[in-house]
Design a protein around this nucleic acid. Sequence first.
DNA 1: AAAAAAC
Length: 487
Amino acid sequence: MSFADLGLSDGLLKAVTDAGYTEPTPIQASAIPSVLMMRDLIGIAQTGTGKTAAFVLPMIDILAHGRSRARMPRSLILEPTRELAAQVAENFEKYGAGTKLSMALLIGGVSMGDQIKALEKGVDVLIATPGRLMDLFGRGNILLTGCSMLVIDEADRMLDMGFIPDIEEICTKLPKQRQTLLFSATMPPPIKKLADKFLDNPKMIEVSRPASTNLNIQQFLVPVTGNAIKKRDTLRRLLGQDEVRNAIIFCNRKTTVRELNKSLKKHGFKSGEIHGDMEQAQRIAELDLFKDGKINILVASDVAARGLDIKGVSHVFNFDAPWHPDDYVHRIGRTGRGGATGIAYTLITGEDAENIQNIEKLTGQKIERLTLDTPATEPAAPAAEAEEQAAPAPRARREREPRRDRRTAGQGEPRSQDSLPDAAQPQSQQAPRAERPAPAAPARQADRRPRRDQQDDGPDDGWNGPIPDFLSYSFGLPAPSDHAADA
DNA sequence: AAAAAAC
């Protein structure tokens, strides 16, 4: 099966090939022909299955015919979070570059001015989070009567977030005669009801196992007994242990995110944080610092679990085991992207047993338990804080030697336990380790830093460039050079 | 349980 068999236009095929894809994912293979035949569709699939391209690609071909009119978008894609909406917009930009299609990204946290301007001009594709869409609709800036295509993405997540009434209202504003696609990882009754009400004889597609348990990601569980202090202590040891060049650390609560980031900074780590209580501009600023390597640790809530696609994240840590197994899959999927290798550690306490069981059930694989040798009791370290003692270099013992085979050439051999990676080293460590000329490390590090200029991507689509300035992200696509799409 | 989303 190749993309050429799916009925996409030549221009689009070229865009797909240029993006480096040859073979459609299962959901793309079954969804694209049906969407092109204008059928309604229910796709049971998680992010990471190539779901975004499954609707973006046929939409581009369908919309290639016809023109947009002022304030009357021709299609609408609803996303639960701002980051996901921005990511879909990036996809449209990538695949629609050869077309005349215009789009607007309607999300909260940014000024309305540019969004309204784009709407006035007329757009083919509207990508929105429900709140801002309803807001603009209420102000009379949007007419949905010309919108003949609707995508409801991550429907079950919309449900969790209480968006279903909004979605229903939006559906009633759209013309009855339209094509509707609904994607959801699960099908709880309210979503089933929504589908029955607003979809017409939909084709059902189910992709059972998400491409989630990426084989490039080594996963480990790290049992921790004790309180938050002990957890932070263990985390610091892990941060110092492996080839941690950068890491996203997930916590279950925003308060934990703040506390942990504060603690890490206090210990000299170059860390930042991201969660939903921060201003959008602040979120972006922190992401930018992380992407640029100015900080190499990002402490995050689940706001970052799905939305982020940052190149070259070497490690993901679950400071807290996630409550929902699919969140685990999404979190660790922030590393090992685009064929790179990644390592994911999950700190677990006694209470997490059930969560871990659910995760292993979902992914169908047992995650290796890592035993950290308990350090010999330390004489109090001189300058360390009273609450958190400095720990000696950690010794991790693996019960089974993990795969090391897919390492890229530039990454070199696994480091020995006592050669701590400079990137993750606290600058204010007492041992004058930092003063030792770092052998070859800086250069290699520069090499491995997330790169802004790499545009290859895994099927899970997303941001590659600088963090999108979706502060001002309502845009028309670049002027088309040739319009090969509709032959 | 938490996080996410409009001003």
